[in-house]
Design a binder for these strands. Structure first.
Length: 663
RNA sequence: GCGGGAGUAGCUCAGUUGGUUAGAGCGUCGCCCUGUCACGGCGAAGGUCGCGGGUUCGAGCCCCGUCUCUCGCGCCA
């Protein structure tokens, strides 16, 4: 026994070690004192080992003294546990250590935060005692998984010929974007460095320096308020940039990295194999957001024409008064009950909306097949799909006088759809009135034919519902998206247990700033506009898209990227449209603008957020569960006590005098 | 900056219509206990009910203000 602290770790010993004299060091996880016999679960980074102390043991006196989270050393012999007392939950559960001697490395005071167990604790206490919190199994594992994920990301990037670079932390403030963290310069009174919001300009400069394929696990600093999925202050990106690439080349480089890492660490959950491309415009229209959760099957559609000139005066009037007004439908399979529709309606009211109009479809009670329907069933049964349905209903076409069953309803629905395809809306509507009904105030107002047309367009059946949102889409799409999410959650339609990825592409280059009545860059000002200089010179800026894209997974925006604008004349024009003359470009982006003048390769990149990737893979709803020492919502580090006051000497050196707000 | 939720023992929480001495579990301390692994049993200590004000004979509970944490909005090219 030569090592001062341990011969093995607490996760290492098994039945093969039985009989060996060993030495372990670790934390006292849990003590079970039986008076005569005493057990200690000893924990280190690697695992848990049961120590057993017999009253006859020389270690017994000390064993009775130790408490949770003391750090101790145990000398003893590995022995198989007596038959029947093995713990198969524990990797080391077949053995235990018969202690001969226990020495205390370090005692622990009464804990503000128990390590044992998985109770929730208040965040401020967890952050103040983060070192204790980090001993706890779940977050300890999260942090280790984070490291493994980053290793894997690195290996996958290097495997594709990317090279890792380090870019400056103290750099220049950049306009637009988030608020910068500033660092005062001692040497240059009154001047400040800024911490990089992202190494955006540096990675582009690397391309202009001829390095071709850059990546970095890059720290980024933004002085913005926190969210559950957004740390205040700092976070990490897998920052990527490539030369001589189109948008497709970037997708092909990044997709396998993300797919691979999600397959490797996603606990075997299925991962989208080929990420679908969804245009920004479509994403808004279908999902009401530019970060859609594709696990939710609900896809919205415009049904404006069915309301134009209809008896539902509220919508019809809006449509007549403004050509921009649309009515969007949120179809909800299985949502066809009064209770659910009312619940959605009152939820909408809670969101400050006037309500949520709906239609749902149900069978008329005690519907019986009449001659007309029996004839229709016979016709339907001739078609392949009809044959299948009839087979499911028991092989017989329902005859006159029989009661409608659930499967008959499916046949009926199929027949109705056929009628509609043939344009026989009137006949379809008359069927409805006989065997089924549409419920909800809107159905009554617009009448059976329009209701039936909506049902058909959305492919809905008995037992389904649809909700309507009307107005100018730009103003209501967000709420529509929330209603889609709400309905999906309420009806349990969201297929959890998968990673559903997509690319959102064709982001608009500019957007209208209503406050300042001007055109703004809607995302990255360095993005290449689709159509290049010609588009900038000839088209309405608000209709121009950029080669700008996002990756979204399960409704979480994982990253944003773009093909960059590497042409000085295009850049000059692009900034001019947003109201920035050339001297502003030179002042704010001088280094990069200069580089563009001396041979810039076409290039582009992307920057997936590492913390969010880890969060998804650890199945954590909060980013602080995957960050070692996060700050709280007020951007304070409660453990280190940051931010803190500077001494007068420090301030003097920095030429700074405080001008504090009145208390 | 704004809105929602929370704040009761070291920790997790309960606390009825405003009514006697504010409870439980975990933890801590003491005693008992030789096969537990969320060990068990008995007992004890531990409370500015976030803070301040108000209503009331009486406030953990009602009202006003305020602080802290959190979720969201704003913000995040």
């Amino acid at each position: 026994m030569t090592h001062a602290y341990r011969s093995h770790t607490c996760g290492q010993l098994g039945i093969d070690h039985a009989g060996q004299d060993i030495r372990l060091s670790g934390w006292v996880h849990r003590v079970r004192d039986h008076g005569g016999l005493l057990f200690i679960d000893l924990r280190d980074h690697y695992g848990l080992t049961q120590i057993v102390i017999d009253p006859a043991s020389s270690a017994f006196k000390m064993a009775e003294k130790v408490r949770s989270e003391w750090v101790i050393r145990v000398d003893g012999k590995v022995q198989p546990r007596p038959a029947g007392t093995e713990n198969h939950e524990l990797p080391t559960g077949l053995i235990e250590i018969a202690a001969r001697e226990i020495t205390v490395h370090s005692e622990a005071r009464e804990l503000p935060l128990p390590v044992f167990g998985d109770t929730e604790y208040p965040e401020d206490i967890r952050l103040k005692y983060r070192f204790l919190d980090l001993r706890r199994e779940r977050i300890h594992n999260n942090i280790m998984k984070r490291g493994a994920i980053i290793d894997s990301l690195r290996a996958r990037m290097k495997g594709q010929g990317f090279f890792e670079f380090q870019t400056p932390i103290l750099t220049a403030s950049s306009p637009e974007g988030a608020r910068d963290y500033l660092v005062p310069s001692r040497v240059h009174p009154g001047k400040f460095y800024a911490l990089p919001q992202a190494p955006q300009q540096f990675k582009q400069l690397l391309m202009m320096s001829g390095f071709d394929r850059y990546f970095q696990i890059a720290p980024c600093f933004r002085d913005e308020d926190a969210r559950a999925d957004r740390s205040p202050g700092e976070f990490y990106q897998l920052d990527i940039e490539m030369s001589f690439v189109t948008q497709e080349d970037v997708f092909e480089a990044v997709e396998p990295v993300l797919r691979g890492v999600f397959e490797e660490f996603g606990g075997g959950l299925p991962v989208t194999q080929k990420f679908p491309h969804i245009a920004f415009k479509d994403s808004i229209r279908w999902y009401g957001t530019d970060k859609p959760d594709l696990r939710n099957p609900i896809k919205m559609q415009a049904v404006t024409q069915h309301f134009a000139g209809s008896g539902f005066k509220v919508f019809a009037g809006m449509i007549a008064s403004d050509p921009k007004v649309e009515v969007w439908a949120i179809p909800v399979k299985g949502g066809g009950s009064r209770a659910f529709c009312d619940r959605m309606n009152s939820w909408a009211q809670g969101q400050g909306q006037p309500g949520l109009g709906y239609v749902f479809w149900r069978e008329l009670g005690d519907s019986v097949v009449d001659e007309q329907l029996a004839r229709a069933f016979a016709l339907v049964a001739e078609t392949p799909q009809g044959r299948k349905l009839v087979a499911e209903s028991g092989g017989a076409v329902p005859g006159v006088g029989t009661k409608l069953s659930a499967v008959d309803t499916a046949i009926l629905n199929f027949g109705l759809q056929k009628l509609q395809l043939e344009g026989k809306l009137h006949e379809a509507a008359s069927w409805w009135s006989k065997y089924m009904e549409s419920a909800g105030p809107i159905a009554k107002n617009i009448g059976p034919e329009r209701t039936e047309a909506i049902r058909n367009q959305l492919g809905l059946n008995v037992g389904d519902a649809v909700f309507f949102v009307a107005g100018v889409p730009a103003k209501f799409y967000k709420f529509a998206g929330e209603a889609r999410t709400k309905a999906g959650e309420e009806m349990n339609l969201i297929a959890k247990d998968q990673f559903a990825f997509c690319w959102i592409v064709d982001f608009p280059m500019y957007e209208w700033n209503e406050d300042e009545k001007k055109v703004d860059f809607s995302h990255n000002p360095f993005s290449m506009p689709q159509g290049g200089l010609e588009a900038l010179e000839t088209r309405d800026p608000l209709t121009i898209n950029a080669y700008q894209y996002d990756i979204v997974c399960n409704g979480v925006e994982l990253s944003s990227g773009a093909i960059r604008n590497h042409k000085p004349d295009v850049m000059k024009k692009a900034f001019e449209i947003a109201g920035y003359p050339e001297d502003v470009i030179i002042e704010k982006f001088g280094g990069m603008y200069r580089a563009f003048q001396y041979g810039a390769p076409p290039h582009g990149g992307i920057a997936p957020g590492v913390d969010r990737i880890v969060m998804l893979l650890c199945n954590e709803p909060n980013i602080r569960e995957v960050v070692l020492f996060p700050m709280n919502q007020q951007a304070e580090d409660l453990l280190m006590g940051a931010p803190s006051e500077a001494t007068p000497k420090q301030l003097r050196e920095l030429h700074i005098r405080l001008n504090l707000p009145e208390a």
